[in-house]
């Protein structure tokens, strides 16, 4: 019926091979989880979630350091998380002997928050450290976990 039918068969064969090659290549190149949730690699979500943490979180700290936690509850620093001052300590929380938290220099540390700045909210306690203490360490007078000085007299020196 068709003259020169081999031409058509050859063309069909080329198309079949091309389609097969496309399907095989596509399967090989596209990651398995691509399209699981959308136009992206679904496994990337779990990969991002699997990263290790650096900050343990204050609940973990307070599990062991109950004395400090109780003391903080008595003062305004109750809202400040442990690692806000002491730094990231998930490694210490996992194994206390692996990492010993460094001693902090309160002359620098306290000023980060409490140094006077006109952009800070007016209700936030601020001092000009040079006038207030002349640059000596804040923990000479204040206890950082409960910073209010107990025997402070009303109307007395700040």
């Amino acid at each position: 019926m068709f003259k020169d039918i081999e031409h058509l068969i050859r063309l069909a064969a080329v198309i079949v091979i091309a389609v097969a090659a496309f399907v095989v290549l596509r399967a090989a190149v596209i990651p398995a989880s691509f399209g699981q949730y959308g136009h992206y690699r679904g496994a990337a979500i779990a990969e991002t979630a699997a990263r290790p943490i650096a900050f343990a979180g204050h609940d973990v700290c307070e599990g062991c350091h109950t004395e400090e936690a109780e003391q903080k509850k008595l003062g305004k620093h109750v809202v400040v998380a442990c690692e806000a001052c002491h730094g990231a300590l998930a490694r210490h929380a996992d194994d206390p002997s692996a990492l010993t938290p460094a001693k902090l220099d309160t002359a620098v540390l306290c000023a980060r928050c409490h140094e006077a700045n006109s952009a800070k909210p007016k209700s936030f306690p601020q001092v000009v450290t040079a006038d207030h203490s002349g640059g000596i360490a804040c923990d000479t007078c204040h206890q950082p976990h409960k910073p209010k000085i107990e025997d402070e007299k009303p109307g007395g020196k700040k």
Partner: peptide, 8 residues
């Protein structure tokens, strides 16, 4: 981490 350490 940022919310954890935010002191205010």
């Amino acid at each position: 981490a940022c919310c954890e350490v935010c002191p205010t």
